[in-house]
Design a protein around this nucleic acid. Structure first.
Length: 350
DNA sequence: AATACGGGGTT
DNA sequence: AACCCAGTATT
C-alpha cells in the first residue's frame, strides 16, 4: 500500500473530533488555522468556539473593533495573529465581498497566511493538491525517510517541501494533509512515539537505523533574555487607575498595560525618580508598595520577565500625558492585556 | 539567513 | 530546564 493510503486509512480510524472538521467553510477553516499556528489544539479550541460564536461570519469579525478582537484573543499569544486576522477579515469583507480566495496562490497574499496556512485552506476547502508542511510533517518525514537536514534551515525547508509534494494524495489532498498532521500529533510524537504499533513502521528509516529519537534535526535554540518590568498600579481615590496601550514593535503590541518602567533590575528607587510622576502634578508624599513579596517570573519561550506590581495610592490626579488614560476599576478588565497582567487584574480588581 | 513573537503542555 | 506546538513577518 502507498504511503498516503496508509496514512489516510490510519486517519479515518483514529482522528479526533474537532469542530472545524465538520465544515469546509473557508472562514471557519481560516480561523482555525490561524489560531492553531504554533498552538496546541487543546489550547486553541476554546478560542475557536468563542470566536465563531461572537463572529459567526467574516463580516461580523470585520465590523468589530480591534480592541474587541484582541480581548477575545487574550491568552492565546502571538498577538500579531489577531491583528492580521482582523485586517484580513476587513479586506475579505470589504474588498472581496466576503468571499475568500479559492486557491493557494491568492490565499498566500492574505496577511497572516503563509505557506502552511495557504496550503491547509486550499486543500481542505477546495481540494487543491498542495501539501502542508508543519511541525508534525517535518517530524514524520524526517523519521520515515531518515532526512537529517535541519528542519529550520533554508535548505531543509526547501527539501521537505519538495519531498512533501511527491507524497501528497492527488485524489484526496484534504484528508491526506490532515492525516499526516494528526499522525504526527498522536502516533509519531516528539517523545516516545508508538513505533511498535505504527502502520508505516516497515518502511521507516529512523526505526530501522535506531535514530527515531535523533530526528528531526533542528538548529540551535535562541537564548533566553531576561527583562525587568516595574508596573505602576495607581489607585486614585480608590476607584481609578491608569493604563496605556503598547505601541511599537515589541512584545504584546496593541495590548494594554499599567505604566511600565523597564530597567536593568527591579528597584523601587529608580521608580521614584521616573518622569511619570512629574506629569501627575501630585503632592510629593505618597507610598509605593510592592503588591507581592517576591517578583513574579513570567516565562515566555524567548524571554523571562521579572515583574513587580507597585501599588501607588493617590488622592487625586490633575493631569496625565496623552498616552495614558485613567479608567475606573470596574473598566480595567474590559481591555485586552497580556495574561501576566490579566492574572494580576483578576486578583487585585476583583 | 536570523530573529522576534506567547502561553502552556510534556518529558 | 528543555523542547514543542496545524508558523509568519520582519530584520
Amino acid at each position: 500500500m502507498k504511503f498516503h493510503k496508509k496514512l489516510i486509512t490510519w486517519y479515518l480510524q483514529n482522528k479526533r473530533s474537532m469542530p472545524w472538521r465538520e465544515t469546509t467553510d473557508p472562514y471557519r477553516i481560516w480561523l482555525s488555522e490561524i489560531m492553531l499556528q504554533q498552538t496546541r489544539v487543546a489550547q486553541g479550541l476554546p478560542y475557536y468556539l468563542s470566536f465563531t460564536k461572537t463572529f459567526p461570519t467574516v463580516f461580523d469579525l470585520a465590523n468589530a473593533k480591534e480592541d474587541e478582537v484582541l480581548k477575545l484573543w487574550q491568552g492565546l499569544g502571538y498577538y500579531s495573529r489577531a491583528r492580521n486576522l482582523h485586517a484580513t477579515a476587513k479586506y475579505v469583507a470589504h474588498e472581496l465581498g466576503g468571499v475568500f480566495p479559492d486557491n493557494y496562490k491568492d490565499l498566500l497574499k492574505l496577511k497572516g497566511v503563509g505557506d502552511y496556512t495557504a496550503s491547509a485552506i486550499a486543500s481542505i476547502c477546495y481540494n487543491e493538491v498542495v501539501p502542508v508542511v508543519d511541525g508534525n510533517v517535518y517530524r514524520v518525514l524526517s523519521r520515515y525517510f531518515g532526512v537529517k537536514t535541519p528542519i529550520n534551515s533554508t535548505a531543509g525547508i526547501k527539501e521537505f517541501k519538495e519531498l512533501a509534494v511527491t507524497l501528497i494524495d492527488h485524489k484526496d489532498p484534504a484528508n491526506y494533509n490532515q492525516a499526516i498532521m494528526e499522525f504526527g500529533a498522536l502516533q509519531c510524537k516528539p517523545k516516545k512515539p508508538y513505533c511498535i504499533v505504527c502502520p508505516i513502521n516497515e518502511g521507516c528509516e529512523a526505526l530501522k537505523t535506531g535514530k527515531v529519537d535523533e530526528l528531526p534535526v533542528k538548529l540551535k535554540k535562541q537564548k533566553i533574555k531576561k527583562r525587568y518590568f516595574n508596573y505602576l498600579v495607581f489607585s486614585i481615590n480608590n476607584n481609578k487607575t491608569i493604563i496605556q496601550q503598547r505601541t511599537g514593535n515589541g512584545i504584546w503590541k496593541g495590548l494594554y498595560e499599567f505604566p511600565l518602567i523597564e530597567d536593568e533590575k527591579l528597584s523601587i528607587e529608580t521608580i521614584k525618580t521616573n518622569s511619570i510622576f512629574k506629569n501627575l502634578l501630585v503632592n510629593k508624599d505618597f507610598e509605593i508598595v510592592p503588591y507581592y513579596e517576591e517578583p513574579l517570573v513570567h516565562k515566555l519561550s524567548h524571554q523571562h520577565l521579572y515583574t513587580r506590581f507597585y501599588i501607588i495610592k493617590l488622592p487625586e490626579v490633575s493631569e496625565i500625558n496623552g498616552v495614558q488614560k485613567t479608567v475606573d476599576f470596574q473598566e480595567v478588565h474590559k481591555y485586552p492585556v497580556p495574561i501576566l497582567l490579566g492574572n494580576f487584574i483578576d486578583e487585585f480588581f476583583k
